[in-house]
Amino acid sequence: MSETADRVKKIVVEHLGVEAEKVTEDASFIDDLGADSLDIVELVMAFEEEFGVEIPDDAAEKIATVKDAIDYIDSKQ
C-alpha cells in the first residue's frame, strides 16, 4: 500500500470506528463502511487537512470508495 493509502486508511478507521481490515481499497464508504453522506463530508475535510489539498464539492461527490479518495489525493500532489 502506498503512503497515501496508509494515511487515508488511518483517517477512515478513526472517523468511522471500523476495523482496519475492512478498509480495503475497493470498500465503499456508504455500502461497506457504514458512512452516511455527512460522514463523507467530514472525511473529505479530514483528507483536506491531512494532505493540504482542496477537494471541491463536485469532486467530493464522486468519491465513493477508498480507492477514489486515494487516487484523487495522489492526482493533486
Partner: peptide, 8 residues
C-alpha cells in the same frame, strides 16, 4: 455508544 457517535 458507537465510536462514530462518540466522536460526532
Amino acid at each position: 455508544v458507537d465510536h462514530k457517535i462518540q466522536r460526532q
